[in-house]
Design a protein around this nucleic acid. Structure first.
Lengths: 202, 202, 202, 202
DNA sequence: AGATAACCGAGACGGTACGTCTCGTCTTGAT
DNA sequence: ATCAAGACGAGACGTACCGTCTCGGTTATCT
């Protein structure tokens, strides 16, 4: 999340409770105010913490929101439903449920937008949000290949490329449905999506 | 874009050149500064216009950026390549090319993020950006159905639902690839994507 | 007080009322809080003015306080009492009365202290506070010389040197009495002081 | 300087070296930064001491600076030059020399200004700075009276009043010359000043 | 020799003010 | 009625210090 010189053993240690309070306050502020009206001073007040404490730990609004939103994705896990289609439906539905929460809606695309001009921020997003999700794609695929539902990949590079493609298609579709089209990615939609993903349009 | 009282006939008329200058200045500022550091005062200065003039025509930063970015999508058109796959590849590649431009990258997701809390803004985006794209999906599908590459839809409602799904999948994948994964949606990627979209993973 | 580009004729003119309100608020804050606890934000609030307005006109706390305190010395004038001793007593008493006011006590020495490291500030103090007082010394002396109570000066340079000396002795004694010794420079003290100044200790 | 509970005999004693280091660091900081930009954190760092140590010994910036500056006046002593005029010139020149040092210039008037609203601080200044100087006035006067250069005082109260007056005139003139007029109180000026003080203007 | 107690450095803490920036509005004279 | 210019009230920004606190550790004196 944030780091200090590893050898700093002296001085008063940082309050562990403050971190949790700040991230919770950030999510609450995202829900109430949305990204653009969220101010760090307000977050600090909500968390019962001084602004300086907040700036001591995070470089700015972007980094703070990434960490606050990333925690939402901790609960994602791959169900073992017995079939590839059911596995995908389960994961996509979990992802859609998280993305439907107002703190995710408000915050996620905003930081992605900011990240187009900030490599460190993009890397932070990749590490704490994207990787968490991509793991599930990889695990689901290898399970499906074990079951014989998907053909094995010819080589490692092709495997990585395909995984990236699948991931962009799955995450992209859910995000677009939720944020741009502003329609719920509910069970029915997830079923339709999964059918097209597995069998194609034709 | 913006409206005035319909009966205003007296007084100095609005400068038509100002609109174009402002939108161009907005795009230039997006390229240089990105969404979050773009300020309306700066845009006004770049456009050689007073801030008042700008506020007389747009309600705020969001609306202005939507209009500025929307113009980028004017050039989208459906090629007639003879096959569904080639049509899709052509359109997706056009879309990816536009989205790769820094003014689009910076601005588009930012206003989408803002739109999660502002219905009027979402409607403005839908009307001036999304509809322009969705038209192509509809046109491409009916052409493919005429060719016999896709089955006809059983009823109008199912047709609309499927069009929305396809659109979310196409636009979402390109956006996610470009902004989140931060990899280029180049010809090779577009071919892979189109194959999965039409034939499925299995 | 503060200047702008002389040729700026366009744009909204600065509010004249704001200047007066700000200076009055500064004096009020000096009385209530003293120099070190006076904050520009508080002055702005008292004056019913935005902080930006204040900073647009003054470079900082020092300059503001000099101007606010300088106005107190506007009322100084040389009485014509018929004798040098009475003239001096009158002027010194006026000066002492002004210096006894809390806004002068708090502010004046503070800005003088700051001016030891800021030439522009010292010049500002000299122009708006010191010169106002020195005028009286010069006028009083020439009047006394006309009366024959003081000998004429041999040359202009000596005249200037003596005037400076007298001024430092008069102002210095009153300031030291008031601020360092923290005793009132009342009529009795002023009479004793004038006697020593005119006739010496011996 | 600072006190502790008198019965504290156990525990680690305070470092004597720390006091000296802190006062020296304070003077160095006054020279480099001036009163208003001097910070206690910086003084602590310069002295190689923790901020806590500093606050354990002084109540704040004001008290610390008074002590730091007071040490400068330790070297003041009354020369025995044989005549009142020469005695005065000697003492005034010593005083002027000390006051010309940047740490005195910056610090002294600042704490005097603060003392207008803080009785304890004024008393501290009186005890550690003013009394040191007034002693010399008293000693010089009694020596001059012994020589017959000055008339004896009629009573003790008048003696005290006159001593205060002389002190305010001497110290005030030097301070005003040095800080407000910002001219050096050099030998020539001191001679002119002494002449007026002893013989008056007429 | 231990226990006790005040000291020490380091540095995080809740606050407050700073001076700057941008917002969206208002007020000029001119077109 | 619109325009360019620029002042205005409002309020967030990120930084700097304040004076306090909490650590682990260090001297001293007092058993």
């Amino acid at each position: 999340m944030q780091s200090r010189s590893p050898a700093s053993r002296t001085g008063r240690p940082r309050s562990a409770a403050a971190d949790a309070a700040i991230l919770a306050a950030t999510r609450a502020a995202l829900v109430e105010l949305g990204w653009s009206k969220l101010t760090l001073g307000d977050v600090a007040t909500r968390a019962g913490v001084a602004k300086t404490t907040l700036y001591r730990r995070w470089a700015g609004k972007n980094e703070l929101v990434v960490d606050a939103v990333a925690e939402l994705f901790d609960e994602l896990e791959l169900p073992d439903s017995g079939s590839l289609a059911a596995d995908i439906e389960g994961v996509v539905l979990q992802f859609a449920t998280i993305l439907a929460r107002p703190e995710a809606k408000s915050g996620l695309m905003a930081v992605v937008s900011e990240a187009t001009r900030d490599d460190a921020l993009r890397e932070r997003i990749r590490a704490s949000v994207v990787e968490r999700q991509k793991r599930l794609v990889l695990a689901g695929r290898s399970r499906a290949q074990a079951r014989g539902e998907l053909p094995p990949e010819p080589d490692a590079e092709a495997a990585a490329r395909t995984a990236d493609l699948i991931f962009d298609m799955v995450a992209g579709a859910v995000v677009h449905r939720t944020l741009v089209s502003a329609e719920p990615a509910d069970e029915e939609w997830v079923r339709s999506f999964t059918r097209v993903l597995l069998q194609g349009l034709t």
